[in-house]
């Protein structure tokens, strides 16, 4: 019983990481209407920037926190720059070109990362406060993973508040159903698009920084996470934030229990779930009918 609870907590921490990254992806799509295939590369950028900050700060205990603050902001700024300089030129183009376009970013960003940081695989150390596990509801659990869970829930809560309660959030929701009309009502859509794209990139960056102490960085990690994002949006419904949350939760649990009980086929489980969803509910948990 205790074991199951531990697995559940592990699954929750997977889920929150996955949610942070995929909600940015789905948000960008819902407002801009463009699939950012390079979203995983932004995440990877977050990981490597966190590593750089950690190296730069040496043994300073606060380096993780500074990385968590700084790296996502840098990623967001980079995203905003790309949207402003390049992406907005192709909104009117055929979707095929839009896919091709963000696809080329994967090559460029991934290779740049390789060039700048090298193929040297590194991992950053956990900040000292997380060095000891905590006793959480009767089980001993990694305090860092608990932190990820709480942070994920916090971001989910803030996002919910932003989207439901603020005027900017309403505009985002309105734009996700009808971009053109929002512009005709006087909303500065170019600015909105840049901001939403930056927000998506920031979320990817946060995910990246959080994962940096858990996993050695490697060149293909962007592609691995983007595939996870795909699976999340297919299961949760394309463009749905609520869907991203529940799908990430489902996948996190599937992964944690899969690793615990059927490690050989764990990887295929998420694909299987996606296949089942595509058969019984093609639009996903909360997807719109069309698209």
């Amino acid at each position: 019983m205790e074991d199951q609870f531990l697995i559940l907590l592990n699954g929750l921490s997977f889920a929150m990481l996955l949610f942070l990254v995929s909600v940015g992806f789905t948000l960008q799509f819902s407002v801009l209407g463009v699939l950012n295939l390079a979203h995983g590369s932004f995440y990877m950028l977050g990981v490597f920037l966190a590593i750089t900050v950690a190296m730069f700060m040496g043994n300073y205990a606060g380096n993780f926190w500074i990385g968590l603050l700084l790296a996502p902001l840098l990623v967001a700024a980079f995203g905003a720059f790309l949207e402003w300089s390049l992406l907005r030129r192709i909104y009117i183009r055929d979707v095929l070109f839009q896919y091709l376009f963000t696809y080329t970013w994967i090559l460029i960003i991934d290779d740049l990362v390789l060039m700048i940081w090298g193929a040297r695989y590194s991992i950053i150390s956990l900040p000292p406060i997380f060095s000891a596990p905590v006793n959480f509801l009767g089980v001993t659990f990694s305090s860092y993973r608990l932190f990820i869970i709480l942070l994920g829930l916090l971001v989910a809560g803030l996002l919910w508040f932003f989207l439901q309660k603020t005027k900017a959030g309403m505009i985002v929701r309105a734009a996700s159903v009808n971009r053109e009309m929002v512009g005709a009502l006087g909303v500065n859509t170019p600015l909105l698009f840049t901001a939403v794209f930056a927000l998506g990139a920031w979320l990817a960056g946060v995910g990246g920084v959080l994962v940096a102490p858990l996993q050695t960085a490697y060149a293909g990690m962007g592609l691995d996470i983007i595939v996870d994002c795909f699976i999340v949006v297919v299961i949760g419904g394309m463009g749905s934030i609520k869907g991203a949350f529940w799908a990430a939760l489902t996948l996190g649990m599937l992964r944690a229990f899969g690793i615990a009980y059927v490690p050989q086929v764990e990887m295929a489980l998420s694909y299987l779930l996606m296949a089942v969803i595509l058969i019984i509910r093609p639009r996903g948990f909360f997807g719109r009918e069309e698209a």
Binding site: M170, A174, V177, G186
Partner: peptide, 17 residues
């Protein structure tokens, strides 16, 4: 072309200027 997922009030808020 109302925003179907928004309430009446929210539809107005988005456009208020």
């Amino acid at each position: 072309q109302v925003f179907p997922d928004l309430t009446v009030e929210e539809n107005l808020l988005v456009a208020q200027r």
